[in-house]
Design a protein around this nucleic acid. Structure first.
Lengths: 256, 256
DNA sequence: CGACTTCTTGAATTAGGTCAATCCCTGTGG
DNA sequence: CCACAGGGATTGACCTAATTCAAGAAGTCG
């Protein structure tokens, strides 16, 4: 089996795995043996501290497609580490409109923005069957006391979040629909790459409507621009499966 | 002198004061005697700690209109507390476009987003003559060690920032130009109110172009919508001086 | 008093939204 | 195994909000 195909298999397993696969992925394993444990390291844990984490983490929770993680106002009770699957988070206006503020994939931490206020500020739902590890909030605080660098790591993660939000603002405010979509695809690609998945072919776990909402454009516009990209051979799509045929040209459309 | 007119005088002093007024405002005073010292309290300082702050704060720095506070990549060397005047912060794309990410007025802290990364991530410039207190970064860290609640306060401030950014996203992505501008004016009004200035009349320290940039609409559109608001007697404007005549109706245009 | 910058307004143009009709999967029940 | 229902995804036609271009007006500064 070539390395590329292994990656693809892995990718597929994490994005559109059947229920049985999820079960397999979620066998209770020690953190140090977990396939994404290095993705938990943003938590600021040295290897020596992993066993400590091991003792407080609650493994093997699976959320079904559409299932709610939390909504605004709910007391902050735990941090989620996504092992597989994906999640969207969004805020709502009084009059029913919503803005998706982020998509989270395997390796992301979820719920940290509630850290300071002690209650969640947005709503988060699974986009597909999603398996997570959960760290109890109270125990998380305790952990923070025992591991001095952890609080500092929290600051780092939050400031990264701010930076990311500001980039999204720039995307929303200053770019054409075409640039938005190109930027979105490139961004997704980079995130997959940073997690050792292939950056050129993946499964979009969110609907066209969700993408449009996130980018501030209509669902139909997402379709039309994808069509344009397809006509120009930039991408190949089949439903939610997508292949980026020309990362360079796509990047050129989406200025930094 | 009525209370209202005192407020207005105060407001004017803080937003379009002549140079001489600035000099006066910036006489070295102890933090506890500073007119906005209660606005420094977000720093997490109890009154007992104020004298400590007093000893490390560097007062009486004045930045001229257009003067740079910092730019991306610059080493994080201090936190600014705005005493009077105003500042815009913004990020830039490779191709020269910029997105204003925030306007900061008297009582705001500036530069905190650099806390974790230890370098500034955006560019900030004075919109007018602006007087600030500066806290040295290294001393700030020391302060954080001595005052345990400070680090927690940092998290709070950063998560508030995230929340605010997400609201701006919603503004940028989901609202018409009219709603954007109404929301912007209401937001400014609330911020002035929270600082005990009159919420119905103030000076816009930023240009129409800056407002448009921030809201993701063209400068001309800002003018046209202001005209519409003026025709509907919602506001009165003369150049950058603005009076909100009907906060209720304006709020109604800008859904939460 | 010029030289600028910022603001304002009009006219023409267009990107993107809305509405509506299919199409195409996927899952379900007979 | 097949027909059918329902939820995305697509596509076309039309329309409108907002942009762009261009020209003045109104302050501001040296």
């Amino acid at each position: 089996m070539s390395e590329a195909s292994i990656l693809e298999t892995c990718n597929r397993a994490l994005t559109k795995q059947p229920a049985s696969a999820v079960q397999r992925t979620c066998e209770p394993v020690a953190c140090k043996d977990c396939g994404i444990y290095n993705l938990c390291l943003p938590l600021g844990l040295e290897k020596a501290d992993m066993s400590l984490l091991d003792s407080i983490v609650k493994r093997k929770s699976v959320f079904k497609r559409g299932e709610l993680f939390f909504r605004p106002g709910k007391r902050f009770d735990c941090v989620y580490a996504i092992r597989s699957g994906s999640v969207k988070s969004y805020i709502s206006t009084g009059d029913g409109r919503t803005q998706i503020t982020g998509f989270h994939i395997a390796g992301d931490l979820l719920g940290l923005s509630a850290l300071a206020a002690r209650e969640y500020t947005c709503e988060a739902r699974a986009l597909e069957e999603t398996s997570v590890c959960m760290v109890d909030a109270a125990q998380f605080d305790e952990l923070a006391r025992e591991i001095p660098s952890l609080q500092y790591q929290m600051l780092t993660i939050m400031s990264r979040q701010i930076r990311q939000d500001e980039e999204l603002m720039l995307l929303l405010g200053k770019r054409s629909a075409e640039e938005k979509l190109a930027g979105y695809l490139i961004g997704l690609s980079r995130r997959y790459a940073s997690r050792s998945f292939t950056p050129v072919e993946f499964h979009l776990s969110m609907s066209r409507g969700d993408i449009g909402n996130y980018l501030g454009i209509a669902e139909e516009t997402v379709c039309r621009i994808m069509r344009r990209f397809r006509d120009e051979k930039l991408i190949t799509t089949h439903r939610r499966q997508i292949r980026l045929n020309d990362l360079d040209r796509l990047s050129a459309i989406a200025p930094v």
